[in-house]
Design a binder for these strands. Structure first.
Length: 533
DNA sequence: TAGGTAATAT
DNA sequence: GATATTACCT
């Protein structure tokens, strides 16, 4: 039982506390010893027994040290020798100030230097000079004779206090504590270990209470930023640290990003596998619609495309009209708003940067899940185009240019990024982020999806017509192409893949499903503010 | 040091 | 059950 435990166990002089009492006055010493003993009394029977043992003891010191009793000596020099020979076997020293062989202050000094034990000075002198001297020499208390038991009852507090100080000192220096060398190493180490463990528990408790790592809520906005970063570096190079750096979000860690990336990849894999199955089914069972014009797709979300296919008709009924001010659409929202505005003006950077994820690799399954998969030389996610596009003519048909439409929308989005209308400048990815506090990160959605600029769209179309229709596409483009703003691409894919499951919801439903839980955990008003706890 | 994956916690 | 966090291995 340690002293501290004893202190906790009993509300009085702790059992097991080992005291060395030093006084040249035998009477005073006897009184002191008696009082100290009395402080440990737990009951008449035990007291009598212990007192009898004390009287009959053969080796007083061994007994005292073994049972945690009081050791006395009338010589300061003897006290020093006892302390030196029994390092770490005393918890407290009570010493008289006036002793013939050694000044009590000298003893105090030696004890402080060699053992670092709490020392209580005892004196008949109430002169403040003595008190001050004792304090300056490191005495933890200064008692006046005749000492009273009330004063002794609480001297254990000095042991506890000193122990705490040692503990802190040991933690800080992380080194060997003084006086713990050689033969007493075991006890010292054990004590230090206990202290460290206790410290750990305290720290853990504190962490549980205050410093617990906040759980990141991947809101749409945050996810947008993630996607933008992925897009920026390219899916092939998308690793947590790069994404984290690009996202530039305070309090977001690499681990957070890695986790989300893991989740994202799993989602890709899952839907791709499902799409494979459906694509196989589609290849076997379906016939495909041949789209006659791009215009038909472009107006898709405004009015159902009049098609003869009952399959498509069933699916089209689930399509929704998306308000023009809708700024995000679930898993693959307006990534372009997060991209540098000059991306589409830098000579086609975005169209060249990232390996083109074939459009056919965006699949919709019947479980209302839609995720992109990326053409990757390394990835197993890639669905062989032949599995999906076999028999399709859209990809090569001059009258069907999904890329043009997608790029047109990209242009729209990019151009609709407003100038900074918030309190901070947009970051490299066009995000406005501000209001960071310790554990809350605010984002402001600064992009509204507006109407297309016909001129811009035409311009891009013209541009595109001079480029290979299969020019490289970024992840962002792919993701944007799945935006719910039009529902175009979904319809296209459904046509391409020949499966228009009746239970397939709108793309909005599909992509929203990814973020549903995250949304529910985050308190934010759609379109306004979100916070990451 | 960082990425990927699986186990664990929430 | 979903997913964020953590641990562990490479």
């Amino acid at each position: 039982m340690t002293v501290e435990q004893g202190v906790q166990a009993v509300d009085q002089f702790p059992v097991g506390m080992r005291v060395l009492a030093v006084d040249d006055d035998q009477t005073c010493l006897l009184i002191l010893e008696t009082l100290l003993h009395r402080c440990q009394y737990h009951g008449p029977l035990l007291s009598l027994l212990l007192f009898s043992v004390i009287l009959l003891r053969n080796d007083a010191l061994d007994f005292d040290l073994a049972f945690g009793f009081v050791t006395t000596t009338d010589k300061a020099q003897t006290a020093v020798e006892l302390l030196r020979e029994n390092k770490n076997k005393f918890d407290l020293v009570i010493s008289d100030v006036d002793m013939p062989d050694m000044d009590g202050f000298k003893l105090l000094e030696l004890v402080g230097l060699e053992m670092d034990l709490p020392v209580i000075m005892l004196s008949a002198h109430s002169d403040p000079k003595y008190v001050m001297k004792g304090v300056k020499h490191g005495a933890c208390d200064y008692l006046l004779k005749p000492v009273r038991i009330e004063e002794l009852k609480n001297i254990w507090q000095h042991v506890v206090r000193k122990s705490k100080l040692k503990k802190m000192k040991g933690i800080v220096t992380n080194g060997e504590s003084e006086g713990n060398s050689d033969q007493n190493g075991v006890r010292a180490n054990r004590k230090r270990k206990d202290q460290l463990e206790e410290k750990d528990e305290e720290e853990q408790e504190q962490e549980r209470g205050n410093d617990k790592k906040p759980r990141v809520i991947w809101t749409r906005e945050l996810h947008n930023k993630f996607l933008a970063a992925v897009d920026h570096v390219g899916i092939m190079n998308a690793v947590p640290k790069k994404i984290l750096d690009l996202m530039n979000v305070d309090n977001l860690t690499r681990e957070n990003v890695a986790s989300h990336l893991q989740k994202f990849r799993l989602a890709l894999k899952k839907i791709t596998n499902e799409a494979k199955q459906q694509a196989n089914m589609a290849a076997a069972n379906s016939h495909f619609m041949q789209m006659s014009s791009l215009k038909g797709f472009g107006s898709f979300h405004h009015s159902p495309i009049p098609l003869g296919s009952s399959q498509f008709h069933g699916g089209a009924a689930t399509m929704r009209h998306y308000p023009s001010n809708r700024t995000f659409a679930g898993m693959f929202p307006h990534v372009s708003s997060s991209l540098p505005r000059n991306l589409h003006n830098d000579g086609g950077h975005m169209l060249q940067g990232t390996p083109f994820p074939p459009l056919e690799n965006l699949h919709i399954n019947s479980n209302n899940k839609a995720f992109p998969s990326f053409a990757s030389q390394q990835s197993s996610l890639l669905v062989a185009p032949s599995m999906v596009l076999e028999g399709h003519q859209q990809s090569t048909s001059p009258s069907f240019s999904p890329h043009l439409e997608i790029n047109k929308r990209l242009e729209d989005w990019s151009n609709n990024i407003p100038q900074s209308n918030v309190h901070s400048e947009p970051d490299a990815l066009g995000w406005n982020m501000f209001g960071n506090s310790t554990n809350q990160t605010y984002f402001c959605r600064d992009t509204e999806f507006g109407s297309s600029s016909a001129a811009q769209a035409d311009s891009l179309q013209m541009k595109q017509q001079h480029e290979n229709i299969f020019s490289p596409m970024t992840v962002a483009q792919l993701l944007r192409s799945s935006s719910a703003n039009e529902g175009l691409f979904m319809g296209q894919q459904k046509l391409e893949n020949g499966f228009m499951a009746s239970d397939a919801g709108s793309l909005d439903d599909i992509v929203n499903s990814m973020m549903t839980q995250e949304q529910s955990q985050a308190e934010f008003s759609e379109g306004d503010w979100v916070w990451v706890a």
